[in-house]
């Protein structure tokens, strides 16, 4: 049994909230550069240039890449041989988010109730996904999720007979309907299989995979490639102003499912696919 202190978790989450919002990961920056070089639309190229300048400015000046500093989505992998002392893991994460958003001058974007809509004033609560894994480590991933893109996400319970084509068409249609709203170029997370909520979870988790890294299964790697190609033929382009870069990555995650079902979820991220992780 290994002990981890409540305070160490608070500090880790605080730092992750700030760094995820200030410093765009290099895989995303490289992806944007790659697509900038082959963007056919002059205005699209200009937008991609400005997005790269923006990311650089945010890094230099220690300020958020985007004013929508998101709802904090936290993925926790808790080793089963870990004992947390000094407080609960759940409260440590919420406290870390509270401190991170305050110290980092990040925007408070959470309302306490979805219909009565009063701002909680400290960006809590975070959405936390827990997984218990073997070992004595604690891995925390913070992925601030902006809602311009979250709002354009979709889920559908397809029929098994809809097959690969059904999934393909649903993903492309969801992106096409999103248009300019989710701040393209997008990163498209796709979850296939499981149950309704599992598919949605997989789609979110798919966004965490670095841009440019394919699914290890060649069948799905091929589908990712074909989807990206098709999506970039839609013409939406950077910021929806027209162009050949509508998405910089399509990441698919899958899970076994029921004989009667084919759930598919599409979680869209903007060009600023933000996430940072640490292992304690």
């Amino acid at each position: 049994m290994r002990e981890i202190d409540y305070k160490d978790i608070v500090n880790a989450v605080e730092n992750l909230c700030i760094s995820a919002n200030y410093y765009l990961n290099s895989d995303v920056v490289d992806g944007l550069k790659r697509f900038r070089d082959r963007e056919e639309s002059p205005i699209g190229k200009d937008v991609l240039d400005k997005l790269l300048i923006n990311a650089e400015l945010a890094r230099e000046k220690d300020m958020p890449i985007c004013q929508d500093t998101g709802m904090a989505v936290v993925f926790v992998e808790l080793g089963q041989d870990v004992h947390i002392k000094g407080g609960s893991l759940h409260e440590a994460i919420q406290q870390g988010v509270r401190q991170g958003y305050k110290k980092g001058y990040l925007r408070n974007s959470i309302v306490k109730d979805p219909l009565r809509r009063v701002n909680t004033g400290d960006n809590t609560p975070a959405v936390i996904h827990y997984e218990v894994v073997p070992g004595d480590k604690l891995k925390i991933i913070v992925a601030p999720k902006g809602f311009g893109s979250e709002n354009m996400s979709a889920l559908k319970m397809l029929k098994p007979s809809d097959g690969e084509k059904g999934v393909f068409d649903f993903v492309v249609r969801t992106v096409d309907e999103a248009g300019a709203n989710p701040c393209p170029p997008m990163v498209v997370g796709v979850g296939i299989g499981g149950t309704m909520e599992k598919a949605a979870y997989l789609a979110k988790k798919a966004l965490l995979r670095p841009v440019g890294l394919s699914n290890p299964d060649p069948y799905y790697a091929d589908m990712e490639k074909k989807l990206l190609k098709e999506i970039n033929k839609l013409g939406i382009g950077p910021q929806g102003l027209g162009g050949t870069t509508t998405a910089i990555a399509v990441n698919i995650e899958v899970f076994p499912t029921h004989i009667a079902g084919l759930p598919v979820a599409v979680n869209i991220s903007c060009h600023a696919m933000r996430h940072k992780e640490t292992i304690i």
């Binding site: 400015l57 945010a58 958020p64 701002n119 600023a272």
Partner: peptide, 26 residues
């Protein structure tokens, strides 16, 4: 440009809340 928040901040020379202060960022 959506998501170019840092770049756009550089073009803002002054800021003053004139109504609905209770809405915070809104």
């Amino acid at each position: 440009i959506g998501g170019a928040g840092a770049l756009i901040a550089g073009t803002v020379k002054s800021e003053e809340i004139i109504a609905y202060e209770e809405l915070g960022p809104e």
